[in-house]
């Protein structure tokens, strides 16, 4: 009897934390890679995973907040935003450490404006978010093309050192993103904006009737997403020695994938901060593992698809049992 209760409790503990699956998957993939290489380069791989997943995680956190506000809400302007912000940062900083502060301000302003612009399209022109953010992404990318035609300006030494530096083997970027994730968790759990976003995601009508300023919160949510994407652009440009137009491309699907794999409900109303990070690490390790195995591109893509489906099934399976447990 006691044992049964214990098992039920365990089950509930797992079910309440769908993000665990992304970490489980990441660890399994890591073990598989290590067993293939005989443990060679273990630290190198882990450290690389922390740096590269940090970029996915930043963009993913913004996307997560948007998706939290319910069906239909999505930000497709993230890749273009990353391209523009990276270019803007490198141009404003102009390789000088003294201009870093100004560059960061410009990037923050750029991200918030893109978010606001998205919201204006959605609200004033009554365009569905998926179309609004897609079309704004074309506009933003065009600006990036015109503005940043010659964008591979090296980052200032300070930014480069920060983006590629490590402390005790842990990349600075990873620490920064951990901080951002923590702030996002606090925002969701402890602030009116976070509560409001969750409430809107669960039922926008009920939220409005309960006196939650639905539109103001949606506006903030898109602005935060824009801000996160632009920070991602800045860090990425610093990390890879300059911005490029195609730099954000993979973030269109990746930013959504890390949110879903991380256990955030696509239907909204339920978000999951640790899962975004876990899923980012998992995705990076997965690609590295398949590359390490030396499989052909076709097989790699099929396996990537199958493994992602498996993880999402595990995540949503636990979400269902969670719902039943209630």
């Amino acid at each position: 009897m006691n044992r049964l209760m214990q098992a039920t409790l365990n089950r509930q503990a797992w079910a309440a934390r769908p993000w665990i699956w992304s970490y489980v998957a990441a660890v399994l993939v890591l073990i598989a890679t290590w067993s293939f290489t005989g443990g060679a380069g273990a630290g190198e791989l882990l450290s690389g995973a922390l740096s590269f997943s940090a970029f996915f995680a930043v963009a993913g956190l913004g996307q997560m907040l948007v998706i939290t506000t319910g069906p239909g809400n999505i930000d497709l302007s993230i890749p273009a935003n990353i391209a523009l912000s990276g270019a803007l940062a490198m141009k404003v900083m102009n390789q000088q450490d003294s201009l870093i502060g100004l560059g960061v301000l410009a990037v923050v302003g750029c991200g918030l404006s893109i978010g606001l612009f998205n919201y204006v399209l959605i609200r004033l022109l009554r365009i569905p978010p998926i179309i609004a953010t897609l079309s704004s992404s074309f506009l933003v990318l065009s600006v990036a093309i015109v503005y940043g035609r010659s964008v591979r300006i090296q980052p200032p030494e300070g930014v480069y050192q920060f983006a590629t530096g490590k402390v005790l083997g842990v990349p600075w970027v990873a620490l920064l993103v951990m901080l951002l994730a923590l702030m996002m968790a606090i925002l969701l759990k402890r602030t009116r904006l976070g509560w409001g976003a969750l409430a809107i995601g669960q039922n926008p009508r009920a939220a409005a009737l309960a006196g939650i300023p639905v539109e103001r919160i949606r506006c903030c949510v898109y602005m935060v997403s824009g801000l996160m994407a632009s920070l991602c652009g800045l860090l990425l440009a610093g990390f890879s020695g300059g911005a490029s137009l195609s730099m954000g491309e993979e973030y269109l699907l990746a930013s959504i994938a890390v949110v879903v794999i991380g256990g955030t409900s696509v239907g909204g109303g339920c978000s999951n901060v640790p899962g975004v990070w876990g899923a980012s690490i998992f995705l990076y390790l997965l690609v590295s593992m398949l590359n390490t195995f030396g499989l052909g591109a076709g097989v790699r893509m099929i396996l990537t698809g199958c493994i992602i489906i498996a993880v999402i099934t595990a995540v949503s399976g636990s979400a269902v049992s969670q719902a039943k447990a209630r």
Partner: peptide
């Protein structure tokens, strides 16, 4: 000894190579 897809993009190539280097 190894082959990765860099997608003709500096950032993607950097990531793919960094991921596979530890095993090479």
């Amino acid at each position: 000894v190894g082959s990765v897809h860099g997608n003709w993009s500096q950032t993607a190539a950097q990531k793919a190579v960094a991921g596979v280097l530890p095993s090479l």
